[in-house]
Design a protein around this nucleic acid. Structure first.
Lengths: 295, 295
DNA sequence: TCTACTTGATAATTCATAGTTATTAAATAA
DNA sequence: TTATTTAATAACTATGAATTATCAAGTAGA
């Protein structure tokens, strides 16, 4: 004799409990009446409890049957809900993506991604953390983050990287500086200035790129200040403590009294890339990245 | 292909999710490893969601699998609980018995039953309602009560009745009445008194019995007052508005200034019976009655 | 009270499939 | 390299769910 109730029993039981009529219940279930009868009988044996009374051909529930009916309804409903949610999670429409980013990605790429996700996968949660390039990669390797936005083209083994946004560089000058977009020709007009840059260990590739821009014009910049926050850099420029070279999109989103001169003619670009762990199994991550590449 | 998950799948899934090792999980389940493998695979197909990652022979849960694990734990626990409760209800150890009773049953039978039930079936609930003989029988017929305590030996079709307590009758007299247990010989000493009795329609058999007691002594009592409450009857006797004949056990449980004279020598007895519906399916009722007959 | 028609239960049989054994491929470990 | 361990696959077995055929008991209508 079988020793375990199955969901099949519950579904059959519920049909009989609702119809209180074996033949009709069997029809509803698309099985034969004798099959249904034996399954219900077997169920009563497994549970060691009588669920129905068959009195003069009238089928009725016992008190235990009434109780079980409520519970079975609950269990089957809960199971339905679970199956739906499971599918959503399995297909990356639900769940959580943990995202890290450089401050400079907060101007366009990250907000666009969040808006896109919200629209396409309203049940998907995101957590955001502003971190340095290195901190992001460590967090991704230790599975504390799913996705990072960095300015790095080479990443440690186990990680993958892909550019998502290319930006020109812009000169940042105090508002009353003699150089402006009209008379600006080349970066070597600013050989004598102090430079304010993002800290080397916060974003090494940015740092190297800026140095290479100057090198292409034949000079080595005098770096007077370093910072990890764009806000700080702009404040220093505003106060005439130096000039800066930053990705152009940074000119939006800050309250400041400085002027931007976009240097379209130089070949270097500020590349923002996404980074993730090659074997990350979060299905939401894939959807996230697919959406990002479509933007 | 199968189109329905079964509890079997859930139990297998949980074993693999806990062990993260097919062979070990299969051993724990006392089935073969290939059988387990195919069942899990089939489960993933039915749910259209990958639950495990098999990476270089390491078995791990996907995010969807993690989610399902929690849900399956809940469902299986809930089911266990339900099975236990179902068995208790089915065997009448849990649930509710709705009891009706005459006020005069509140002295011994009903309290004894309640104490006994509490001890033997602590999970069983009881509801109590004081009602007339007729009201109890109607309530039982319409399935509003499971069990009644009445003073009736004949009951309508569909009901069953069984005596549970036999009591002598007692005379109730004012404290300073000339008759006392010493000089009392026969009821005909009280021919001239006014009688106070329980109302005829509240308890017809009691009324008839009292009349037959008097008839046996060769007189018809003069009935001056009728009441449905013992308390009222005693108050009236106390105030010398008449004398009463009541079941002897009523002398306990009331604060009153009257004297009782037990009439052991007369043949009539006040019989308290339990009544129930022949086809009542409440399993707790049977336990209730069995216990009552053992008291 | 007879007949016709329900109802659910039982018996015999069929058939789907859960679970078996045997084997393989791939990954570690020695 | 070889030995061992892993999960997956293939072929087969056997359990038991579901089927058809039938029955007994009850109900309804004349």
């Amino acid at each position: 004799m079988n020793y375990q109730v199955e969901l099949r029993h519950f579904i059959y039981f519920l049909a009989v409990a609702e119809e209180l009529h074996y033949r009709k219940a069997a029809e509803k279930l698309f099985i034969s009446q004798p099959g249904l009868s034996t399954q219900i009988k077997q169920m009563e044996e497994i549970l060691q409890t009588q669920l129905f009374v068959r009195d003069k051909k009238k089928v009725r529930l016992t008190p235990a049957g009434e109780f079980l009916k409520k519970e079975v309804e609950f269990i089957l409903n809960h199971l339905d809900q679970t199956k739906k949610q499971l599918k959503l999670i399995g297909h990356g429409h639900m769940g959580e993506v943990r995202i890290g980013f450089l401050g400079s990605a907060m101007q366009n790429v990250v907000p666009d991604l969040l808006v896109g996700l919200k629209e396409k996968y309203p049940l998907l949660h995101t957590t955001l953390e502003e971190l340095s390039n290195r901190a992001q990669m460590n967090a991704i390797l230790s599975d504390r983050l799913d996705l990072g936005f960095v300015r790095m083209s080479r990443v440690p083994k186990g990680l993958e990287v892909k550019p998502v946004f290319e930006d020109t560089f812009s000169l940042v000058l105090p508002q009353d500086h003699p150089i402006d977009s009209k008379n600006f020709k080349s970066i070597d007009q600013l050989v004598l200035e102090d430079f304010i840059l993002f800290a080397q260990d916060y974003s090494p590739e940015y740092y190297d790129t800026v140095l290479s821009i100057c090198e292409d014009s034949g000079f080595v910049p005098k770096v007077s200040h370093k910072s990890v926050h764009a806000q700080t850099i702009f404040k220093l420029v505003e106060n005439k403590l130096g000039i800066a070279i930053v990705p152009t999109t940074l000119q939006h989103g800050f309250q400041m009294e400085v002027k931007f001169i976009e240097m379209k003619q130089i070949k270097q670009r500020a590349v923002l890339s996404m980074v993730w762990k090659a074997d990350n199994r979060n299905p939401a991550l894939k959807n996230c990245m697919d959406l990002l590449l479509k933007l």
